[in-house]
């Protein structure tokens, strides 16, 4: 297991190296923070400062960029997490139904809904969702991640946790307020995610249902639902997770677009506001934070895949 981890990290370090080159190019071309003419030494000193975590100080509010960036990105992660949960709760059962009844009425209905979710552009849906709840009579907040009435000091950066830490002052109001602010943006993101998950689940389940051990399970006399629950689900999961890992960057970019529409203080809004006000130093920092996160989550997802799917453990020893 340890060797496996090392091998993955080694592979990903090459990607990380290329990313630092990119970030350095961006920084070198937009803001010359050093008058050094020699690009190589500039690059090494840049690498040095990155490893220490010093990305410079933002022009706008004189705070270190790294900290602001991390806090902003954690908000984006909260949004993605929430949307993920909603998407899994809704999407997986629908995908399972669609996969089991392949090419039947249920399948066609579900796939039509999923296709609509994939076809709609995410920013348009976000804009519609700013007005739709009111048109339907539901009052839901559409701006920011928490009402400005509550002043929450930044402890961990994750607002879900921070708002629970101020219970003496606000009781649970701040936390509930934050949750309601999360509902609309994560529903918009979940729309896209659900379609993806329905598609992937349906495909994975169809593939699994054709396999031999399901036929053997039939001959053991199990009911259809027992087969699905005990055998199909666990075996259908690895391809789904693998595909989602490939889609991770798309999900994050959609989340950032949604944040801009809803003024949700996440990485998308932070980048947008900084560029709008001319603070280009954040670009390289944002590049490294976001892509670093995607790299690390790739490793973690690989790990999870190995844990839940024993057949992938073969790749621990052989190169697949």
């Amino acid at each position: 297991m340890f060797n496996y981890l090392l091998r993955r990290i080694y592979l990903l370090s090459i990607t990380a190296f290329i990313l630092t080159l990119l970030a350095f190019t961006i920084e070198h071309w937009t803001v010359h923070t050093q008058i050094d003419d020699n690009t190589f030494s500039h690059y090494f000193s840049y690498l040095n400062s990155i490893i220490k975590g010093d990305f410079g100080v933002s022009i706008i509010d004189n705070q270190p960029i790294f900290n602001t960036g991390l806090v902003a990105f954690s908000s984006t992660l909260e949004l993605c997490f929430f949307a993920f949960i909603i998407a899994i709760i809704i999407g997986m059962p629908l995908g399972i139904f669609a996969g089991l009844d392949r090419n039947n009425g249920v399948d066609y209905t579900i796939m039509t809904i999923a296709l609509i979710g994939l076809a709609l552009p995410v920013f348009w849906v976000a804009i519609i969702f700013t007005i739709l709840p009111h048109a339907l009579g539901i009052t839901l907040p559409i701006d920011g991640n928490i009402s400005p009435i509550y002043e929450i000091p930044v402890v961990t950066g994750l607002l879900l946790i921070d708002s629970l830490l101020v219970t003496e002052r606000y009781q649970l109001d701040a936390f509930l307020n934050h949750l309601t602010h999360l509902i609309l943006p994560s529903t918009v993101l979940a729309l896209f995610l659900t379609s993806e998950i329905i598609r992937l689940t349906r495909h994975a389940i169809t593939m699994v249902m054709k396999s031999n051990y399901i036929k053997a399970a039939h001959t053991k006399g199990l009911t259809r639902w027992q087969i699905v629950y005990r055998h199909v689900l666990k075996n259908a999961l690895p391809p789904i997770i693998h595909q989602i890992r490939l889609q991770l960057s798309t999900i994050i970019s959609f989340a950032m677009a949604i944040e801009i529409v809803f003024s949700y203080q996440g990485a998308g809004m932070w980048l947008f506001a900084s560029i709008h006000q001319g603070d280009y130093l954040v670009l390289s920092a944002a590049l490294l934070i976001i892509s670093g996160f995607i790299l690390i989550s790739s490793i973690i997802i690989d790990f999870i895949l190995v844990l839940i799917s024993p057949s992938k453990r073969k790749s621990l020893y052989a190169d697949q």
Binding site: S211, N212, Y213, K215, A216, A217, H231, K234, N235, I308, S309, P310, S311
Partner: peptide, 8 residues
């Protein structure tokens, strides 16, 4: 082997 559930 293909008739046994690989994840169990």
């Amino acid at each position: 082997r293909s008739y046994l559930d690989p994840s169990k």
